[in-house]
Structure formats: C-alpha cells, structure tokens
Write a protein that binds this DNA or RNA. Structure first.
Lengths: 225, 225
DNA sequence: GTCTATAGCAAGATAGAC
DNA sequence: GTCTATCTTGCTATAGAC
C-alpha cells in the first residue's frame, strides 16, 4: 500500500467516522482534515469535494455486500430466496450508516450529481450491481419468460433502488420495516415472474418489456454479463 | 392583504422569477433580497431557509394542476384516459420549470426535509393530491377488486411520484420521453387493475394490499375522502 | 507526486440594534 | 419587521517544503 493510498484511506476512514458520530452536514471539511492530522488542502487534493467522500462510502458498502453475497449465491438455488437474502444482506451491511445515510441521500437523488445511481459516472458501479442481479437470476432455478429474462436484472436493480429509497425513510429499530418490505415483496415478485409465462400475461409482459426498452432508462446501456 | 403578506408574496414572486431565469443554485439569497428591494435578514425573517422558498413553487404548481384537472375530470369517464390526461396535464404545467426543477429535487428526496413528499409537514398537500387520485378512480367506470380499491388512490399517487422522479431525469425536448412513459404505462396499469378481479390474481392482490397496509407508508395516514 | 500553511471568496444563515 | 454586521463553511488559490 503506497503512501498515497494510505492517506486516501485515512481521509475516508476519518470522514466516515465523523459522519457516523455527528452526521454529514455537521461534519466540516476542516474537522475531517484536523482529525486526520492533515491540511484541508490535502483532503481536497484527494477528493474534489465533500460529496466525493460519499463515493468512499458507496465503495465500502458495495465491497462488503458482494462478499456477503458470494456465500449466499454459492449455496442457494431458489430464486426468491436468493433475491431476498441478497437484499437482507445489504440492509445488514448498511445498517450502521443508516442514521446519516439519509442525510446524503439527497445527493444521490440529484440527477446532476455524479453520485446519482442513474448518472453516467455511476455506469460502472451500476453495471456491476446489475451483473450481481443477473447472477441471482441466472444461477437460480427460476423459470421466466424469455423476453422478460433479458431485462429482468435491470428491473431487479430498480427494485433494489426502491428498497433503498424506502430504507432511508425508515425510522424503525434495526430497519425492521425495511426487512419486512423485503421479506414480503420478494415472494410477490417471484410469483409475478412465474406468472409471466402464463397466457393471460403474455401480451402485458411483452408490452411492458418493450416499453422499458424504448425508454432507454440509462444514459449508457448496461453491459451484458 | 396585510403588509406582511405583501412582503411574503413579493419574496416568493421574485425568487421564482430568478429561479426560472438563472436556476436554483445560481440564485443567491442576496440576489433575491436585492431584487425585491429588501435586506437578506428580512427574507430570512419570512423564510427559514432557501429551501422554504421552494414550497411556493409547489403551491403554484398544485393550484394550476387542480384547475386543469377539473375540466378533464368533469367530462371524461374512462379510468385510463382520466389518469393519463391528468398526468399529462401535470407535465404541461411543470414544463416551464423543468430546467431548474431538477436542481431542487434533491431537497424533496431528503427524508429529513419538510419538502419531502413523505414528510409530516407535507401531509396536507399529499392528502389533497391523493384525494385527486380518488376522484380520478371513483368517478370513473373502472371495475376494481374491492380490497384494492381502498388503497389504489395511494398507489396511484406513488405512481405519480415515480413519474415525477423520471421527469426530473428526463432531458428530452418538451419532456417527450416522460409523456411516452405516461401514455404507455397508464394502459398497462388499467389492464392490471382490471385483472385484479381475476381468480389467478386474487391472492397476489390481497397479499400486496395487506403488505401495503402493514407497512403504513406515511408518517400519518391519509384521510379518507 | 505528496503535503502544509495560510489567506481569502461566496453564499447560506444568524444576532442584535432599531 | 427590518436592517446592518457578522459568522460559518464549502471551496479555491498560492507559495513552498520534501
């Protein structure tokens, strides 16, 4: 680990600690620099803005989440269970940061911000996430309509984003309500996905998939696995 | 109209004009105050923060939207058409503000902000909106599962919020893509609502409705019509 | 390339006098 | 209610040390 990487980590660690202690807004760049034993200028040398520190948070969460999923996805084959456990694992990991996570959620919601999950800058991390959802689906025993299957990972990612949206509003202890949301929506989704092959459903499924395609949700299309 | 009310209006009018001219972020409180012929301190006497000025924008949009809907809802009876035209009317009205609307969307997304559509402070305006959706549904010819019917206006409101979320990301001229989203999702929704009475669907509908109820989406429950 | 120190701007927000 | 003066803080700029 080079000196530069050490400093970078030191800044992120200090920032995350202070964020957790006193919240995002009340943590000044001056305080982060002082606490880390650095100058403000140095902090800005590594991170273009206070917002950019949030990326450090994202990266950490994602890394931990992927590690947690590896175990789950290696053993479980049922689609619904895979999806549910993957999402619950995310909540477990994000839990310690919930109190202040909401404070910078606003940045993620700003379409102009590079931190927005829909932004061009987020393409890579978004695609990695979508790929995770692909794995959840493809290595499961789920039977899905062929058309739907191609876009389903993206839809699952959107579902995940919705859960996150709910989570930042959730004030229940241990994010219990979010957990309930997950545990009770995944079976519904699994059933709907199963129904997608039914005759009554065919046209509506096709129309929905076609619409999704025509909209071109993302600035740049996600890479296929 | 008292002096105080006049000053208040003057500040909102000036702020909205400047927001439209140069965007939210680039409009400083100093500029608003100067342009209105007041001191900065005075502006803060009436509005606790720059964010609070946004409420003036919401109020204006909602007023115009309700007026536009009155006409539509008085003549049209088809559920899908009512919903579609109501949403398209919203896009028409919000159109002039789209360029800078996205800039303060971040505030709406912040759960801690009183401007969040989910906040306690927004209860009144939210309930008024949900009541509008009730009207769209109840005075239409739609046939809906009884259980679903009770929560459907709230779900329609969430759908509306989703459209708004898409809209702030939409960069197409005249919000064409958002309009397409509306025109093509309303038929899908109308069909799904119709299917809700089907036998295959009953259990899944009931489960969904029950979940929605158990979650208690809002800090305070919406008033029944 | 990595880092310090310091000075200073812009703009949101506040205090206290009147 | 209104003002002026001031504070705070994100961020920038510069000059220089190693």
């Amino acid at each position: 680990m080079t000196k530069s990487e050490q400093t970078r980590s030191l800044i992120v660690d200090t920032a995350l600690r202070l964020f957790a202690e006193r919240g995002y807004d009340k943590t000044t760049m001056r305080a982060i620099a002082t606490e880390a034993g650095l100058s403000v200028g140095n902090a800005y040398y590594y991170f273009g803005s206070k917002e950019h520190l949030i990326q450090g948070f994202y990266d950490r969460i994602q890394e931990l989440h992927f590690a947690a999923c590896a175990e789950i996805l290696a053993t479980e084959t049922d689609f619904e269970t895979r999806m549910r456990r993957m999402l619950l694992a995310w909540v477990d990991i994000a839990e310690p940061y919930r109190a202040f996570g909401a404070q910078f959620f606003r940045n993620a919601a700003d379409p102009a911000s590079p931190l927005s999950p829909f932004s061009v800058e987020s393409t890579e991390v978004r695609n990695r996430h979508i790929a995770l959802h692909s794995t959840v689906l493809n290595e499961s025993t789920a039977k899905v309509d062929g058309e739907l299957r191609e876009v389903l990972p993206e839809l699952m990612w959107l579902y995940h984003m919705t859960v996150v949206l709910y989570w930042v509003h959730d004030r229940s202890p241990h994010s219990a309500t979010t957990r309930m949301l997950i545990s009770r929506t995944t079976p519904l989704i699994a059933r709907l996905v199963g129904l997608s092959r039914l005759k009554v459903f065919r046209t509506i499924t096709r129309d929905g998939v076609q619409l999704f395609r025509d909209l071109g949700w993302f600035p740049s299309p996600p890479k296929p696995e």
